[in-house]
């Protein structure tokens, strides 16, 4: 893997994970009501907008990444995002990582490492 591909890959992981965590913060606002009330409650707080900014950045970075690698390889390397989001959820939202979570993280990380080195 060339240094350029690696850097673009890591940029994607950073903005994707940041976006996912921001969306979780937006969605779990704790206010009553569903439907439009849910969307209004999300729009009042910064998290939804922060998430949208991260995802716009990811839009460009992902396009650059897919210009450099085949689609199937890109989507496999992109699975590293799952590991990053789980770790982020643990650090920021105190979500528990039970032994099954740790097994899943290990399997994905091992698989991504194999694809990355292949």
């Amino acid at each position: 893997m060339s240094p350029l591909i690696f850097i673009v890959w890591m940029l994607n992981v950073v903005v994707d994970t940041g976006g996912q965590l921001a969306f979780k913060a937006a969605a779990a606002h704790g206010d009553e009501g569903g439907g439009m009330a849910h969307w209004r409650a999300m729009a009042r707080r910064p998290w939804l907008w922060l998430g949208i900014i991260f995802f716009c950045a990811e839009f460009i970075f992902w396009l650059v990444f897919l210009s450099l690698v085949p689609l199937s390889e890109g989507i496999l390397l992109g699975s590293l995002n799952i590991v990053a989001v789980l770790v982020g959820g643990r650090l920021i939202f105190n979500e528990r990582l039970n032994s099954r979570c740790l097994l899943g993280i290990f399997l994905i990380a091992a698989g991504v490492a194999i694809v990355g080195l292949a």
Binding site: L76, G104, L107, I108, G111, V112, A113, I114, V115
Partner: peptide
Amino acid sequence: AELLGSALIVGGILVLSTN
């Protein structure tokens, strides 16, 4: 090698999503 990696990744996703 990529197929082996994919199998591990999909296995990991399944483990997580059925958690």
